[in-house]
Nucleic acid binder design. Structure first.
Ligand SMILES: [Mn+2]
Ligand SMILES: [Mn+2]
Ligand SMILES: [Zn+2]
Ligand SMILES: [Zn+2]
Lengths: 142, 142
DNA sequence: TAATACATTATATTTATTCTAAACTGTTGA
DNA sequence: TCAACAGTTTAGAATAAATATAATGTATTA
């Protein structure tokens, strides 16, 4: 299946018609060699740089939300004033570099399974995420 | 040391003068039998209900931030449009009930130490937090 | 008590996000 | 062929959390 067809497929499955703007969003999100993390503002900037298409904020938000609902994108819980999204939808964890404000993936196999001994009656666990905040290691201070 | 003195102590150590408003904030935050989680809006509501003191939003934000800086409060990373704070500043983890939008503590001893095998050169880990999202367990669906 | 530094407050500002409503587009079927 | 319709895009407005401002009030200390 060609890339464009994959995008059209993802869009259709998300309940969206494949329009010029939405396919451009797909190209940026799903054509990358690697998965990546982004904020909406960053995504808009990438689109503006890569294409001569103008895409409105509203369309970007709507499309990102539709993809999230379908599981093609994940939102990363971070204490920030803006949302971070992830094109890596596999189960994994994160470092958050507090100085660079950057997320770094930690593959699932690099963390022993998180075993929680406590349960809440009537509730089940839907996901477990680890966030390790990192800062510069100034070895000077021993 | 009497409660009020403890509050005055906390305030002074946070670089704040002990004023009527700030002592009231302390009463709500640190006089509870148990630690708890709150949003700024909730905190303001509690103060309004418990006291006939009016405290402005600005004062609440400033005081909460000063306490955070000093380590008397923690901010919980949650994917939400508003910040959640925690009066439990010990190292622990959380359930987040996605239906009730409520945080529940998981004591450190209820989670095996999270061992991360990957390291980032020049960086050191400052904190590791686990967030387990929970939802109703409709046992009907096997 | 007076001078000073700090605090409180109402209000304005900022910023991410969501909403709205008007213009536009692609599809369908008479 | 083209009118009707459903869905789309967009600029701009609305919302809401958080922060900044600046005038007024209060605690501190000499
Ligand atoms: Mn969202
Ligand atoms: Mn903050
Ligand atoms: Zn990731
Ligand atoms: Zn907690």
């Amino acid at each position: 299946m060609a890339y464009a067809d994959q995008y059209i497929d993802k869009l259709r499955k998300s309940g969206l018609r494949p329009t010029k703007q939405r396919i451009k969003i797909c190209e940026v999100l799903f054509d990358a060699d690697k998965t990546f993390h982004f904020t909406i503002k960053e995504l808009v900037k990438i689109i503006e740089n890569q294409a001569n298409i103008k895409v409105s904020l509203a369309t970007v938000y709507n499309t990102v939300h539709a993809f999230m609902k379908k599981g093609y994108l994940k939102e990363i819980p971070l204490n920030a004033s803006q949302s971070y999204y992830d094109t890596n939808v596999s189960h994994h964890h994160h470092f958050f570099d507090e100085e660079e404000n950057k997320l770094i993936d930690i593959h699932q196999e690099d963390v022993d399974e998180v075993k929680i001994k406590r349960t809440i009656p009537g509730k089940k666990i839907r996901s477990v995420e680890v966030i390790a905040k990192i800062v510069s290691d100034n070895q000077s201070q021993k």
